[in-house]
């Protein structure tokens, strides 16, 4: 039986172009994914300005970012929440497994729209104090 002969004279060349294509596609994929993971909860809001604004030095492992939109809605953990739901998250009454030591390591960041009323911020401060969360910060933009 005759078999097809592969010409052996053709040397094998390492094709670098497809490899570069794939590597760059991977890079794009991971960069874009990371970007979306970071900004998942970052609803665009008009933040208030402050002169004493600082860059975040270190972020606590258990940080809760609460966004107050212009429509006066609470956004946290990627969804719109009612006040009882948000209070439950802050006070950790949903899981009921809040240990004092863990609570102290928690951090709450309030990203409130500049035009939102203090009425919406006040209960957050109250709940944080009640839950023993010391690190509460306001997201601001530097004064130009």
């Amino acid at each position: 039986m005759k078999t097809a002969k592969v010409p052996r004279s053709r040397s094998l060349r390492f094709m670098i172009t497809p490899m570069i294509d794939i590597v760059f596609l991977l890079i794009i994929f991971f960069l874009v994914t990371t970007h979306f993971v970071k900004s998942e909860t970052l609803e665009t809001v008009d933040l208030p300005a402050a002169t004493q604004a600082t860059n975040e030095e270190e972020v606590a492992q258990r940080r809760l970012v609460i966004t107050i939109t212009k429509q006066e809605q609470y956004l946290a953990a990627g969804r719109v929440l009612s006040w009882p739901e948000l209070e439950g998250i802050i006070l950790e009454t949903e899981s009921g497994t809040g240990k004092t030591k863990e609570k102290k390591e928690r951090e709450v960041r309030i990203r409130g729209d500049a035009s939102s009323r203090y009425e919406l911020v006040k209960p957050i401060l109250m709940a944080c104090a009640e839950a023993g969360i010391q690190k509460v910060s306001f997201a601001v933009v530097p004064v130009e």
Binding site: L47, T54, A129, Q134, F138, V140
Partner: peptide, 13 residues
């Protein structure tokens, strides 16, 4: 937008 922080220190406990 560059976001910065205005920290507060709440009384705990």
């Amino acid at each position: 937008v560059v976001e910065m922080t205005l920290p507060t220190e709440l009384a705990a406990g």
